[in-house]
């Protein structure tokens, strides 16, 4: 099975939006490798023709009436925001400096 390199962990951390430290890269590389080694058995167990199960309850198309119901007020929705401005969520800049 593949071994996970430090660079791959750095790539995963980037995808997962985790600004991990250099020390964490070393720790996680070893640990993720161990864990993946242990769970890799799943590859040997299930044959091609076994269907996957994504969910224990076979439910499809759970509908409700299309009626207006009360939701959170603007005050409630914004109450836990780290920063607000003019009754909106305030976010840091989205575009890079060069854009």
């Amino acid at each position: 099975m593949p071994t996970i390199s430090r660079d791959e962990v750095a790539h995963l951390a980037g995808l997962a939006r985790l600004a991990v430290t250099e020390a964490e890269l070393d720790t996680f590389a070893g640990q993720l490798d161990d864990i993946l080694d242990s769970v890799a058995k799943v590859n040997e167990v299930a044959a091609e023709d076994i269907p996957p199960t994504s969910h224990a309850v076979p439910l499809t198309n759970v509908f409700r009436e299309d009626v207006v119901r009360p939701g959170l007020s603007r005050e409630q929705a914004l109450a836990n925001a780290p920063a607000t401005e003019e009754n909106r969520f305030r976010v840091p800049r989205i575009l890079s400096e060069e854009a």
Binding site: V42, V45, A46, I50, P52, T53, S54, A56
Partner: peptide, 14 residues
């Protein structure tokens, strides 16, 4: 190899 196979094992356990 990972998630897909794990879901198949889930079927086998069930």
């Amino acid at each position: 190899a990972y998630y897909g196979q794990a879901q198949k094992v889930r079927t086998l356990v069930t």
